[in-house]
Computed example of a mutant assay.
Amino acid sequence: MLPSAVAAWIAGSGSLLVLFLLLHLAGVSLALLQPPAFEAYATALHQSPWLLPAEGLLSAALLGHLGLTAWKLVANRQAGNRSALVSRRADRWGAWAARSLPLSAAILLLFLAVHLAQLRWPRPPAGLELARLLEVLAQPWWALLYGAAGLAAGLHLLHGAEAAHRSLGLLNPGNGRAIRMAGRAVALLLGSGFLLVALLLNGRAVGWLA
């Protein structure tokens, strides 16, 4: 596969995963704001005929994103690129986020494996989704992992948003600042949003938050 095609696939699959995270954050936020609405949402989602195809599409996007990113990393290393060249921007935060991609990816993969084992296989019965989630987050180590995964997602996106636009040929000097600021806003929303949800649900589970 041509390098340009690989970059486009990485950008496209990453964008699909970010869209999923935004929708997922909106759904799980209901657990804090409107618990009955969250249970209704979870039950309707799990009974939807399109859920399995959607999960298959997301799984393919994730596997493609991981596999092609690893291929690109190996190709870059073979071409002589090193971490000092990982970011082409005069942006300390972006460069640091880029160098931290392996760490943020590892945290996200660990979280995904744990999260699926806890809340997907097996899936809680209808009406008990929130109870199971609170049971999980009542454990300090799990609450810490869920919060760390939120921060890792935000850190990953801090680099990935601009990199995706560059890979798709959409980044230019005229729109670079706007794309960077928008990417940072989405990264902050996802990172702080999932962290806050994990912390507040932990508080509700252990009793320090009503």
Rank of each mutant, 00 (worst) to 15 (best):
L200I: 02
L17P: 00
L63F: 08
A164R: 09
P49T: 15
A143V: 09
V18D: 07
W93V: 08
V186N: 04
V86A: 14
L201S: 12
Q34G: 03
E55W: 12
L137C: 09
G80Y: 05
S87N: 11
Q118T: 08
R132D: 01
W50A: 13
L103H: 14
G203D: 12
L137H: 13
P122A: 01
L25I: 13
L19W: 02
G56S: 04
P140K: 00
H115Q: 08
A54K: 11
E135D: 14
A44F: 04
L63D: 04
A131S: 10
A198T: 10
A106G: 05
R204D: 04
L200Q: 06
W142N: 05
A210P: 12
T69M: 07
A42I: 08
G160A: 15
A163H: 11
G67Q: 01
R99N: 10
P3T: 03
S15W: 07
A152Q: 09
A148Y: 05
G12I: 07
L63S: 04
L103G: 10
R132H: 04
A31V: 10
A105V: 13
P53H: 14
L119N: 09
L52I: 09
L209H: 15
Q78E: 14
V186A: 06
L196E: 00
A70E: 08
H65G: 05
A210C: 06
S48I: 05
Y41I: 00
A148I: 03
A164T: 11
H159I: 07
P173C: 00
N172M: 09
A187T: 12
P35D: 02
F20G: 11
L196K: 00
G174A: 12
I179N: 08
L23W: 15
L58I: 10
L45F: 03
P35E: 01
A161T: 03
S100G: 04
A182P: 00
H24L: 00
R166V: 15
P102S: 12
W121Q: 06
L196C: 00
A7W: 02
V206D: 06
Q118S: 07
R184M: 01
G80A: 04
L22F: 10
W96N: 07
W141E: 11
L110P: 00
I10R: 06
N76F: 11
F20D: 15
A11W: 03
V18G: 06
L58S: 04
A210M: 08
V197I: 01
A40Y: 00
A98Y: 05
L103P: 05
G176T: 10
R184F: 01
L109S: 01
I10F: 02
P36K: 07
A26D: 11
G64T: 11
L32P: 00
A97W: 07
L33I: 08
L33T: 09
L209T: 15
G127C: 09
A84Y: 02
A148V: 04
L201D: 14
G67A: 03
S4N: 14
L62P: 01
L17M: 01
P102T: 12
D91T: 14
L109F: 01
V28I: 14
L2T: 15
P102E: 13
I10K: 02
A152E: 06
A42Y: 08
A97G: 07
A161N: 03
L168E: 11
L108Y: 10
